[in-house]
Nucleic acid binder design. Structure first.
Lengths: 205, 205
DNA sequence: CGACAAACGAAACTCCTATTGCATTAGTGA
DNA sequence: TCACTAATGCAATAGGAGTTTCGTTTGTCG
């Protein structure tokens, strides 16, 4: 029998030229996405800007969705700073402002929008995103867990659910109403999630 | 001088064959969207299924975004039922359950997802959607306005903002985490928006 | 009923996307 | 340093999306 599936390109010799190509392609993807927008993103353009044969890009990333997934690594590194002020109220407000900041002042906005739009059509991207959010929200939930331990919130509060409630309004604005993310929203989102948690509406089920 | 812009096809003779074509095309669009998904939606396929020349579809709808916009009319008619129970709590819970229902049990789910994904890339669709949500949320805010009049909520509460806070978690799940919309979510979303309003966190700015 | 033109249908054509086969380059281990 | 082959580059190809032209059908009005 012949080997069922040969190793994916870029996995056997991950250094040297292979790595240079990877860098050039991700750089080109990011550049095009930010300058031209998601709509103009195509494998051909990326290959052209990267100075790489398009067949190479097709082989290693398959399509634009694969290119976007590669960019998620960057999003993971550029995390939103998590603080520990000793007060849930301030922790959550800081988090909300961090979210507003990262989506308005950094490259994350267009990238995340493109990824979400793609995830509607593409299961691979949807899975990748789900995992990404889960990790991120779980880390952010730490401040809620501390608050519960301090007795500032009901003992059976679901920490991650609080974070999700806090985050939801941002994505609502970005995707549904296409409104700007201002500090007003950050304060409302943080206050809303906190009010719900305090009222006992975000308990574990 | 020649006429700046001639009337769009389908506007001068809106009856007879023109109307039959419109019906066939919207039917085909809906069918393809629901059966094959947004990814498989193309002008060519729609024209084929509708039994219409593709040049006709391109002329009148321009692209798939135009086809999707046509479907928004259907969404407007299939409104979420608004109740008046005399209690904000019950009104909002009923609304939240209505949202969960319409997106899980009807055709609205795939349609709205496709529209939102498209709106990321397409200004026309984004504008159409924004108007659509504004109208919908404004109508739903009626129950909040009644609650304010009764003195059940702070006088300067922003009624529409309450509705938006209530709706946000649904779109968060559909678009960001791709989780199902269950009754648990409906209860949490309604309770969260209400708790925030009562706490005075959703006042007009 | 008859004339006018709106709207549609059919087909050719261009452009872009995606796939494939083969030659070439360059990591990698002996 | 040399042999091996992973990975890339190049070019040809196929297929779909979008545009344009022109002839035909058919609402609409007098």
């Amino acid at each position: 029998m012949s080997p069922e599936t040969s190793a994916l390109p870029g996995t056997v010799r991950p250094r040297g030229r292979t790595e240079r190509v990877r860098q050039a392609v991700t750089d080109a993807t990011r550049t095009l996405l930010l300058e031209q927008g998601y709509r103009e993103l195509s494998v051909e353009r990326v290959a052209e800007v990267a100075g790489v044969a398009k067949s190479t890009v097709y082989r290693r990333w398959r399509d634009t969705a694969g290119l976007l997934l590669e960019l998620m690594t960057e999003l993971s590194t550029g995390e939103i700073p998590l603080v520990d002020t000793g007060s849930v109220e301030e922790d959550l407000l800081s988090l909300a402002r961090g979210i507003a900041h990262v989506y308005t002042e950094t490259n994350a906005g267009p990238m995340v929008l493109a990824l979400i739009a793609e995830s509607v059509q593409n299961e691979r991207v949807a899975d990748g995103l789900r995992e990404f959010w889960h990790h991120r929200n779980d880390r952010a939930a730490e401040s809620v867990r501390r608050a519960i331990e301090r007795g500032d919130l009901p003992a059976d509060t679901d920490p991650v659910e609080v974070i999700r409630m806090l985050g939801a309004p941002f994505y609502y604005r970005m995707l549904v109403t296409h409104e700007p993310l201002d500090d007003d929203l950050a304060r409302r989102a943080a206050a809303t999630a906190l009010a719900a948690a305090r009222a006992g509406d975000l308990r574990k089920r």
